[in-house]
Design a protein around this nucleic acid. Structure first.
Lengths: 119, 119
DNA sequence: GGTGTATTTAACCGTCTCGTTAATTAACCG
DNA sequence: CGGTTAATTAACGAGACGGTTAAATACACC
């Protein structure tokens, strides 16, 4: 497992349970038990997921008696956003190509008249 | 390994070699050998990375004699961008907090006069 | 057909991941 | 103190990951 920030972040995000945890934390700080509730999974499993998120810097944990509330820490998500932003032109380009293609199709249809299709 | 799109995409991105390959492909279609050149790694290793990227839908491969040129396919990156965008307010908020904190510091400095620090 | 080049597949290995259950720590409460 | 609740640690197992070397495949060229 490579140790650079971005790799650790992406690895942490590559699990739907962890992304769901982040989504839950987006609506506020919560205890581990509350976080675990929606999942059919043992507490230790959730605890491990939280450790992964914490080591990735995606969440932070404090202390309140026997509870260890978690909160979202979005700095690393900004790094992800910045990284992916470099590729924006590529998906916009391909959208443009699709768009052009569709316009071309429409054009042909007009040219050839609106023939009704079978079925 | 979960099988949903986003998980597969993030898993594929969680490796610096694969991200470097994507970066290289951003400047154009290339052969496997050319892609492999910058890395101190065997060809089969690169071949496996390419397979991961391909199965994740991040690249596409064509055929040209014995070459199998790869090109970037950015659709999945758009999905990443869309996903991370949901969290934008969180990193902007924390930036705001930092900003507020720094302004507060500056304010205090003014109040107490600009005392020179030791060293 | 034989040789060279590009690339993949096969087999293997050590390490990490994601889950489990059982035991442990930590804090509160009567 | 003893019991309850919250959460983590320990130990384990199946399977994925990321690399290796050696062999196989695919095509071009003479």
């Amino acid at each position: 497992m490579p140790t650079d920030n971005l790799s650790t972040t992406f690895a942490a995000l590559a699990d739907p349970t962890r992304r769901a945890i982040l989504a839950r934390l987006a609506s506020g700080e919560t205890s581990v038990t509350e976080l675990a509730a929606p999942f059919e999974m043992s507490m230790p499993a959730i605890s491990k997921h939280l450790k992964v998120l914490e080591r990735a810097g995606l969440i932070a944990r404090s202390r309140d008696a026997q509870w260890r509330p978690c909160r979202l820490d979005a700095g690393r998500l900004k790094e992800v956003a910045d990284w992916v932003e470099h590729y924006r032109r590529f998906w916009e380009e391909s959208f443009d190509r699709l768009d052009a293609y569709l316009r071309e199709l429409k054009n042909k249809e007009k040219k050839h008249g609106l023939k009704p299709r079978k079925k």
